[in-house]
């Protein structure tokens, strides 16, 4: 059972206070998008053995969505950050490179 720090209210939240929301940084494709792009948006998800970026909601707390960068194998948490961004902050990417050199994830790495 994980703990993640909610970047909005600062609480080190127990997993029972949180809801998982799947992969982070997915770009929305709406009307006018190609079938391929739309399919990618709706159905394609990463399933990495290692570094991952996820969406979580502090649902039994302040109610805010946030992002978590963590390792699906070691459960190490590289950091959490607000959801109002299209990619992880530089400091978190740098931290990941420090402990998991050569990591890649979708458009990152």
């Amino acid at each position: 059972m994980l703990t993640l720090q909610c970047p909005y209210c600062g609480v080190q939240a127990d997993e029972t206070e949180l809801s998982a929301g799947g992969e982070a940084h997915i770009e929305r494709h709406g009307p006018g998008s190609s079938d391929e792009a739309f399919q990618e948006y709706l159905f394609s998800r990463e399933n990495p053995f290692g570094v991952h970026f996820e969406r979580w909601r502090h649902s039994h707390g302040c109610g805010k969505w946030f992002h978590a960068a963590r390792n699906t194998v070691t459960l190490e948490v590289y950091g959490t950050y607000p959801a109002q961004t299209t990619e992880p902050p530089a400091d978190i990417r740098k931290r990941i490179s420090g402990v998991a050199p050569g990591w890649t994830w979708r458009f990152l790495g």
Binding site: R28, R57, G63, K64, W65, A83, Q84
Partner: peptide, 13 residues
């Protein structure tokens, strides 16, 4: 309500 908040917080912030 959660659906609304999700779109407001994560897409149309």
């Amino acid at each position: 309500h959660a659906h609304m908040e999700e779109w407001l917080q994560t897409e149309w912030w």
